[in-house]
Design a protein around this nucleic acid. Structure first.
Lengths: 120, 120
DNA sequence: TCTATAGTTGAGCATATATTCAACTGATGT
DNA sequence: ACATCAGTTGAATATATGCTCAACTATAGA
């Protein structure tokens, strides 16, 4: 009855104080959305392999396709997403397009991930 | 013709040396799979909010449902995935089930993410 | 200019996944 | 014992997404 947030929960609120504290410190919806989107880029087998490879060497689309045993098209589609997320940049050189990591921050995110994997 | 890796690329290999170097240092398929799966847990708006909230306070399902304005069912489904990925643990207490982060590593992954967001 | 090759793109398809819904379990209090 | 409420679960649905395919652009070399 007194639900102001439409698709709300169907229960009597138990720890209102805790909820208030958390809500007060909560980042904006946009922050979460952006963060989730960042992680989405790491959340696919192909993309994570591409990112890892590029963290090692600058590579062109064909190189990545050969490395991962996939078509240029599939790789190109994923590279586009990575580009739109500002995780990789490209450098046109003749017929080839060389891709590399946009910045070293990407490498950091990786390391944290691999650490966690190692721990479990 | 000499493609041993079936769904391979359709191009003459350009930088065979680079590919060899990267392939030599490449983590196993399982590692990438595990890592992608870890990031997948952070790659959804609901789950990332749950994880963030739990990094602040231990909470029961109803609390999370109220906080995020969602049904207990939706929250419970996501908590199950997080549990299976060993990112959260639960503590039964009477009628309530209290959830909290499984370990502090999770918090670290967050921070790296928020840092990156802040930089761009 | 003509051909070959690197790369991109959009549509279509198949799969994965987030939420809803309804039914259920289990603990509490009367 | 019974009603109530927290939480879980499985099926169903709607949406998101990764890859394929075919067509396209652009650059290099003949």
């Amino acid at each position: 009855m007194e639900n102001h947030n439409p698709p709300s929960c169907e229960c009597t609120i138990i720890h209102e104080d805790a909820i208030k504290r958390v809500r007060a410190a909560m980042p904006s919806n946009e922050s979460f959305y952006g963060l989730a989107n960042l992680y989405k880029m790491f959340a696919d087998n192909t993309r994570i392999k591409i990112l890892w490879a590029l963290s090692r060497e600058e590579m062109c689309v064909c190189d990545l396709a050969a490395l991962l045993g996939m078509t240029k098209s599939a790789i190109s589609h994923q590279l586009k997403l990575l580009r739109l997320s500002n995780l990789v940049k490209n450098d046109k050189l003749g017929k080839n397009v060389y891709y590399s990591l946009a910045d070293d921050h990407v490498r950091d995110v990786f390391e944290k991930g691999f650490e966690h994997i190692g721990h479990t």
